[in-house]
Computed example of a mutant assay.
Amino acid sequence: MKNIKVGGVPEHFNYPWKVTLKNNEYKKHNINLSWQDFPGGTGQMCKALRNGDVDIAIVLTEGIIKDIAAGNPSKIVQTFVKTPLIWGIHVGANSTFQKIEDLEHATIAISRFGSGSHLMAIVNAYNQGWDVSKLKFKVIGNLQGGIDALTNGEADYFMWEHFTTKPLVDNGTFRRVDDCPTPWPCFVIAVRNEVLESNFKEVKKVLDIINKETTNFKKTKKLDSTLAENYEQQLEDIQQWLKITEWNDGKPITKNLITRIQNKMVKYNVIEEKKNSGEFIKNMYI
């Protein structure tokens, strides 16, 4: 039995992993797959990949591209969710900030430097025509840290996935002033190079299993009510999220896609320069 450790955010995007684990899909192929939630998001997972704490991570595209360029010994093996992520831009319920224009000089809560909440704050600033070099950040670790920072005034706004934070908007913890979608597919699957070399067949089987699950995932009976219950969401919010979310059906990631994403990341000042796109990816289906 080969041991493989997988990590991802504890959000509805990753429910297909929970289903396949519950059904013991991996053990049927002599793979002992263990799942770890990373509430700190992509920055936390990039660190875990570097440290060997996980073998596979479902990470935000922009975060892992930036970290592989900075030396993370991992490869992107495929897109996981091919639609954009909708980032809600949140302020505290009692904040004096009313609209996005008010936030130009405000302090931004981010989970970590290099995380999605950090990089998308830069994208949003660029979209607004603000001076990216003057952005002010407060590192808060995770969603709970964001709640605390906005509540006690340590930071002014916080960007996190729209539907995950919707209950906090509904209960009056946050007020959402706007949304900012990613200009690229949102989640990819990254694997440590060492694991690709030693367990290539097992990693490929893991991908086969999860891709089979996501191909027909949206046809699952009573999926909307199951997700609403599991993730404490309103049924209509989950239904809206399902409408706009598409998983990859197993198509390998291409150098062309990585190049296009890097071009946008340079344009948005998220990375300073492009690197050879072939260095970021490993095609599992050659």
Rank of each mutant, 00 (worst) to 15 (best):
187 F>M: 13
173 T>L: 03
205 K>V: 06
270 V>R: 00
242 L>N: 11
237 D>P: 01
246 E>T: 15
218 K>W: 07
223 L>S: 04
214 T>Q: 01
246 E>F: 12
206 V>T: 09
238 I>R: 00
178 D>P: 06
262 Q>T: 02
259 T>M: 13
273 E>D: 13
205 K>I: 11
193 N>L: 12
258 I>E: 00
253 I>E: 01
215 T>L: 09
225 S>P: 06
226 T>D: 07
246 E>M: 14
228 A>Q: 04
181 P>T: 03
190 A>S: 09
199 N>Q: 13
208 D>F: 03
192 R>D: 09
233 Q>R: 12
188 V>G: 03
182 T>Y: 01
207 L>F: 08
227 L>V: 08
191 V>T: 11
261 I>V: 14
250 G>C: 03
231 Y>C: 00
205 K>Q: 10
227 L>I: 15
205 K>F: 03
222 K>V: 09
192 R>W: 05
199 N>V: 04
262 Q>D: 11
195 V>T: 13
263 N>K: 12
207 L>M: 15
192 R>S: 13
257 L>Y: 05
210 I>R: 01
233 Q>Y: 12
196 L>I: 08
206 V>I: 15
241 W>Y: 10
217 F>A: 07
223 L>P: 00
212 K>Y: 03
242 L>S: 09
209 I>W: 03
260 R>M: 10
268 Y>A: 02
176 R>A: 02
